[in-house]
Simulated scan of single mutants.
Amino acid sequence: MPKEVVPRPDAETLRAADADRHKIADQLKASLDEGRLSLDEYDDRVRQAYAARTYAELLILVADLPKPGVSAAEVSARQAAELRKAERKLPMALLVLWTVWGSLTAVNLMVWFIIVVTYRDDMYPWPVWLLVPGAALGAATVGVQAIRRQRRRR
């Protein structure tokens, strides 16, 4: 008889070990030392940490705390950097279009270069016409990024 496969639960529902509880208690101690927690809050959270059975019960105790040694300015700077990074990221459709355009341009330039070298006569530079779709793609990219930035600020 085949053995029945039981789906694995989420990581947060798994049982926590003593080492996990101690790690959370250390993070709470660091937050107390930095002045992020009052002594009463610290006592309550440490008591809950050592009574916790799952990772979810542990993680909720430190969910509102930054990593030890991180200032509020650093947290704000990291969040702002992540937001700027997300704003710069191109949608997949534009990435595909830029890749196709770049590939076609490279192939056309290589073919034109090979013909110019072997023909040894003046050759019309037809790859220059690839600047037209490139400019349109550039304008579309700028427009899409501006719209995405505007929507995020609302």
Rank of each mutant, 00 (worst) to 15 (best):
L28A: 00
D64C: 10
Y124R: 07
A49S: 08
A72T: 13
D64N: 11
L131Q: 09
F113P: 01
L109H: 02
T105V: 05
A56H: 03
A93V: 10
V117H: 07
E57S: 11
G143C: 05
R21I: 04
A51K: 11
E12H: 15
K85W: 06
E87Q: 11
V144Q: 04
E57M: 10
W126Y: 11
Q145N: 09
G143P: 01
V96K: 02
V100R: 14
D64R: 15
R151E: 02
V111C: 04
L131I: 13
V75W: 09
L65I: 07
R78I: 08
A11E: 11
L109W: 01
R45Y: 05
D26V: 06
A73Y: 07
V6P: 03
R84P: 03
V142D: 05
E57W: 01
W101M: 13
A93E: 06
R78Y: 13
R88W: 05
A51P: 00
A140H: 00
I60M: 08
G143N: 03
A30Q: 03
D122E: 14
W101F: 14
V100I: 15
E87M: 08
W126Q: 12
A30V: 06
A73E: 14
A17N: 11
I24A: 02
P127H: 05
H22I: 15
R152S: 11
M92V: 09
D44M: 07
R36G: 02
S103Q: 04
L32K: 06
R45F: 03
W98K: 06
R36M: 02
R153F: 08
Q48S: 11
D121E: 15
M110G: 02
W98N: 00
R8P: 02
L95P: 02
D64H: 15
A81Q: 12
P127F: 03
P91A: 07
V96S: 00
Y55Q: 08
G69P: 00
L58G: 00
D10L: 15
V96H: 07
